[in-house]
């Protein structure tokens, strides 16, 4: 079981309030991602749940029991740190067995569980090495191994992939998702990378300055961002945000249109513009188009390999069903 409830949880360092009172429920077995720009309080929130920081006000309940004053060691949670935080003086085997040793399990049971975890994580051949002798991806797996052996109520991940190179990151992302499918244990995952959030989460919590901006499934957030911040943060490349007369024409202060929801034509369309830089990814092509009456270039995404010349005149047409409208407070107009 691993249902975690935050009830008016507030955190202040001295006079600085990092997290204003906040409510959040994480259901058992959910994969929840906290996402937001750096300094938004997502790591602090995770550390509050872990018990590594004291809560200033409010209550944290794990499976219905008040855990606010319970020390981290007693909360039954496991954490994977950004730096992995492996014990450099212990072998991989001892690292993974450490929580079991602390729990007072007998040696045979420790060995059995370490062997099982090593099997799952492909670490069997490395059990007698020291962390210093491992690659980044292997260290990451040891940190995960250390977390899974104790069968925690929930896993906490603090930007676990940020120290890996791009290729490895994609691989580990799949491995962690795979692990979640198999273990069905609650996972709380902190990242600043919206791609990680979109690809892994059951539920995304978008944070800014300690506030929750929106909570929902990845596609909810993609389809109906609650405000301009979420609209700009979720989706890659970013949503085009247009103000002025064009927005007023849609009865809004700002309208948003995703690059993939704009079509390009050489002959006719809604907005006339001039093609700037093109980015060819093979599978897709991104164009940066400067349009008359619109501030700043718009990003347009076209599937496959399409060639437009630098300086060429084109017409853009947004898909009317995919236009997001926002009012003067930046909130979505339904």
């Amino acid at each position: 079981m691993g249902r975690i409830t935050l009830d008016k949880v507030r955190k202040a360092f001295g006079d600085v309030e990092v997290i204003p009172p906040l409510d959040l429920t994480i259901e058992d077995g959910e994969f929840v991602v906290f996402v937001g720009p750096s300094g938004c309080g997502k790591s602090t929130l995770l550390r509050l749940i872990a018990g590594l920081e004291d809560v200033s006000d409010g209550q944290i309940r794990i499976d219905g029991k008040d855990a606010t004053a319970v020390p981290p060691a007693k909360r039954g949670l496991a954490m994977v740190f950004q730096s992995y935080a492996l014990y450099p003086h212990m072998s991989v085997r001892k690292n993974i067995a450490f929580p079991l040793r602390m729990a007072g399990l007998d040696k045979a049971e420790q060995d059995r569980r370490v062997a099982a975890a090593a099997e799952v994580l492909n670490l069997t051949d490395y059990l007698d090495r020291r962390p210093g002798q491992l690659s980044g991806g292997q260290r990451q797996r040891v940190a995960i191994g250390r977390a899974i052996v104790r069968e925690p109520a929930a896993f906490l991940f603090d930007e676990p992939l940020s120290n890996l190179d791009a290729a490895l990151r994609v691989g580990m992302r799949l491995e962690i998702s795979e692990l979640h499918k198999r273990l069905k244990t609650t996972m709380i995952y902190v990242t600043h990378d919206q791609v990680e959030a979109m690809t892994m989460a059951d539920k995304i919590v978008v944070l800014r300055a300690g506030h929750i901006e929106q909570v929902g499934s990845p596609l909810d957030l993609y389809r109906a961002p609650r405000n301009l911040f979420v609209a700009g943060f979720i989706g890659s490349p970013k949503m085009n945000l247009i103000g002025g007369a064009v927005a007023a024409g849609h009865d809004a202060t700002t309208i948003g249109i995703r690059p993939e929801h704009i079509s390009v034509s050489a002959e006719a369309g809604d907005w006339k513009g001039i093609v700037g830089l093109s980015e060819h990814l093979g599978s897709d092509t991104f164009f940066h188009v400067t349009c008359e009456g619109i501030d700043g270039p718009l990003t347009v995404r076209v599937g496959g390999e399409v060639a437009l010349d630098y300086g060429q005149t084109v017409w853009l047409s947004p898909d009317p069903a995919q236009i997001h409208r926002f009012d003067q407070n930046g909130l979505r107009i339904a």
């Binding site: 872990a50 981290p72 060691a73 954490m79 014990y87 450490f98 602390m102």
Partner: peptide, 27 residues
Amino acid sequence: IPAEILEAARMDGATLKAEILYVLTPM
């Protein structure tokens, strides 16, 4: 000695004594 390692020990269920004995002192 990174603070994260001591926090990891705490998350792993180590008491203060175990933390000093098995993690801090060897390091």
